[in-house]
Simulated scan of single mutants.
Amino acid sequence: MPIAIVSIPVADQDRAKAFYTDVMGFAVPRDDPMGPQSRWIQLQPPGGGASITLVNWFDAMPPGCQQGLMLGVADVDAEHARLAKLGMVVTAISAEAWGRYTMLSDPDGNRWVVATLSAG
Rank of each mutant, 00 (worst) to 15 (best):
M1S: 11
P2V: 09
P2Q: 13
I3A: 11
I3T: 12
A4D: 12
I5Q: 08
I5E: 15
I5C: 03
V6D: 04
I8V: 15
I8W: 13
I8M: 11
V10P: 01
V10W: 13
D12F: 03
D12E: 09
Q13L: 07
R15N: 08
A16F: 13
K17E: 12
K17N: 08
A18Q: 14
F19P: 00
Y20I: 04
T21I: 08
T21Q: 05
D22W: 00
M24E: 02
M24H: 04
F26L: 05
F26I: 10
A27C: 00
A27K: 07
V28F: 06
V28I: 11
V28D: 07
R30Y: 15
R30C: 05
D31T: 02
D31G: 00
D31R: 02
D31M: 04
D32T: 14
D32K: 13
P33V: 05
P33N: 09
M34L: 11
M34A: 12
G35F: 02
Q37E: 15
Q37C: 01
Q37N: 10
Q37S: 09
Q37V: 00
S38H: 11
S38M: 05
S38Q: 07
R39P: 04
W40K: 02
P45Q: 10
P45C: 02
G47W: 09
G47I: 05
G47K: 03
G48N: 02
G49R: 06
A50R: 07
A50P: 05
A50Q: 06
S51C: 12
S51H: 08
S51V: 03
I52Q: 04
T53M: 15
T53H: 12
T53L: 08
T53A: 14
V55W: 09
W57N: 12
F58N: 03
D59H: 02
A60S: 03
A60L: 00
M61E: 14
P62K: 01
P62M: 06
P63K: 13
P63L: 03
P63Q: 10
G64N: 03
C65W: 11
G68M: 08
L69I: 11
M70P: 02
L71C: 00
G72F: 12
V73W: 15
V73F: 12
A74K: 07
A74D: 15
A74S: 06
D75L: 01
D75W: 07
D75P: 02
D75R: 05
V76L: 08
V76R: 13
V76C: 01
D77L: 06
A78H: 10
A78M: 09
H80M: 06
H80Q: 10
R82N: 04
R82E: 06
A84T: 15
K85G: 03
K85C: 02
L86H: 11
L86F: 07
L86D: 13
G87D: 02
G87P: 03
M88P: 00
V89D: 13
V89M: 06
A92I: 03
A92N: 13
I93N: 05
S94D: 09
A95N: 05
E96F: 01
A97E: 14
W98S: 09
W98N: 04
G99K: 12
G99I: 01
Y101E: 14
Y101L: 09
T102G: 01
L104T: 15
D106M: 01
D106H: 05
D106E: 14
D108L: 00
G109P: 00
N110E: 10
V113F: 13
V113D: 14
V114K: 12
V114A: 07
A115D: 10
A115K: 04
T116Q: 15
T116P: 04
L117I: 07
S118C: 08
G120H: 15
G120C: 06
